[in-house]
Every structure is written in C-alpha cells, then in structure tokens.
C-alpha cells in the first residue's frame, strides 16, 4: 500500500516556495532559451496550493491507483508544473536542466514520460475531457480520488472545453474540479481583444457547473476555494491571476507569453525575486 508522503506546507511556507519556484522557472526557461514564461508565473501559486495543500499522491509511486489526478491542460506552461513536481519529489531538482533538451525527461509541453505527468499536452482544450475520463473511471472502480484540471483562460475559446463541460455536468462528475488561470492574456494579446470570454462565470454556470472565484496568487484563498469545491460538482474555480506575476516588467505584458528572458532581463528579474 502506497503512503502519502508529500509535505504539507503552511501558507507562509507556500509563499516562500512560490518565490523560489519563480526563480527556478526563469532559470529553466533562460537556460533552455525558449519556453512559456508568463503563464508559468501566473499558475505557480495555484500549483503550490494544490501540491502542498490538497492533492493526495505518492511521488515514489506515481501510478498509485488512489492518487488524486492533476491534469495540466495548458501544457505550454510546463515550467511551473515541472518545478512543482520536482519540489513534490517526483524527480530530483537537477533534472530541471533537461527541460527542452534532446532525450531530456522534461519535454517542451508536458508529456507522461515525466513522472507525475498524467496527460500529453500542447494542443489546447483537451485536458477537461481527459480529466473527465479519469473522473468516470473513479466511479466505475469505486475509488474516491478527485480529479483537477488546470486550464488557461484563452484556452476556453476551444470548443472541446464546452463539449467537456456540458458532458461532465450531464454525467454528474462530482469528483471533477476545473481551475481556470484567469490571467487575461493569451498568445497574441489580451483575451478581450482576441475573443470575449465574459461573462465567464455565468457561462460555466449555464453549463451546469458550480462556480467559485478566488485570488489565484493568495494561497489561503486558493486553498479555501479548493476546499469548497468538494461539495457536489463539477466545480470550476476561476482564479484571478496576473500573467508574469512577480516580475514587474513581465506582469500584464503579452510579450512574455511565449518567450524566454534575455540575459539582462533574467538578471533584473532575479533581483526582483530575491
């Protein structure tokens, strides 16, 4: 029988872990010379809250059948995911340097060859369907694990998201929680300029979901939302976040969706994250 061995952090410890994670994210992307900076910095507080406050898992047994499932649907934001998995003990932190390298363990977009990664990713809109599959399997097998899927807000422009939303409510997937990293910026520019998403909460509610909003950078607020999400589902948490959070010149800057910092930018960012 596998044992749940992950450390449970206090909110204060989460804040420190998130700060260190932001430095690790930037180092990974700077070293690789490419990668998705903005969305990794916007999602990291959500991931820290999940992995060190909510999820049941055993990093020594990634396939433990009773584990809670976490699905990163916005798979381009893999750096934030990888530093969290390393911190959780799925692989040594030294492995972070293999990000985007030939024969490396850490692919450009999250792929299940990496311990702790459930789903192949890189094409938007797929994670909620995949998570629903796990959620239905739990019911079939009489297991009580929960399933979480993290989506980008721009990703909600994909039709499959709404196919999945409709069917999760129809099939009564009460063990399924979607979290939306609502950072208001997508690949090209601000989401409002590309395609209107509001009223986002109403849209999910109309598809039969419980809707909870939270500040996606306040760990206590995220934890509270995640605890509320256990009461009948499916539930979506719309987490308000800031793209590029933590680095002044990256915050709310669409230019940092998908590029690595230059040497000067990297140095300046580390000073802000000291």
């Amino acid at each position: 029988m596998a044992v749940v061995t992950q450390p449970m952090l206090t909110v204060e410890e989460m804040r420190a872990a998130a700060l260190e994670s932001r430095r690790e994210i930037l180092k990974m992307i700077f070293d690789a010379g490419s990668g998705h900076t903005g969305g990794s910095l916007s999602e990291i507080d959500i991931l820290i809250s999940l992995y060190f406050g909510v999820l049941r898992y055993d990093p020594g047994a990634p396939d433990w059948p009773e584990r809670d499932r976490f699905v990163l649907s916005k798979g381009h934001a893999s750096p934030g995911f990888y530093v969290t998995l390393a911190r959780a003990g799925y692989f040594p932190a030294s492995e972070l340097s293999s990000y985007r390298k030939t024969d490396g363990l850490l692919q450009g977009h999250a792929h299940p060859i990496t311990p702790g990664v459930e789903m192949n990713s890189g094409s938007l809109g797929m994670g909620l369907s995949f998570a629903l599959g796990h959620a239905l399997a739990a019911r079939l097998d009489g297991r009580n694990y929960r399933v979480f899927a993290l989506l980008g807000d721009g990703e909600c422009q994909e039709g499959e998201v709404w196919e999945a939303a409709m069917s999760a409510a129809h099939h009564g997937a009460d063990n399924l929680t979607a979290i939306i990293d609502r950072n208001r910026i997508q690949n090209d520019r601000f989401t409002d300029e590309v395609m209107t998403l509001e009223p986002l909460a109403d849209r999910w509610r109309d598809f039969g979901w419980n809707v909870i909003s939270c500040d996606g950078h306040e760990h206590a607020d995220v934890l509270h939302a995640l605890s509320e999400a256990t009461d009948g589902g499916p539930t979506v948490i719309i987490a308000d976040t800031v793209k590029g959070k933590g680095v002044s010149f990256m915050e709310n800057n669409p230019g940092f969706h998908g590029r690595a910092p230059t040497a000067d930018e990297y140095e300046a960012a580390l000073k802000e994250l000291a």
Binding site: M126, S129, E160, E163, A164
Partner: peptide, 14 residues
C-alpha cells in the same frame, strides 16, 4: 473531440 478525450482519460485510468 470530447469523446476521444474522455476515452483517453479512461484508458489512462486502466
């Protein structure tokens, strides 16, 4: 799209 996505999740769960 959703059918295949859900099927993949079910398959990943055994």
């Amino acid at each position: 799209q959703n059918i295949v996505g859900v099927a993949a999740g079910l398959a990943a769960a055994g």
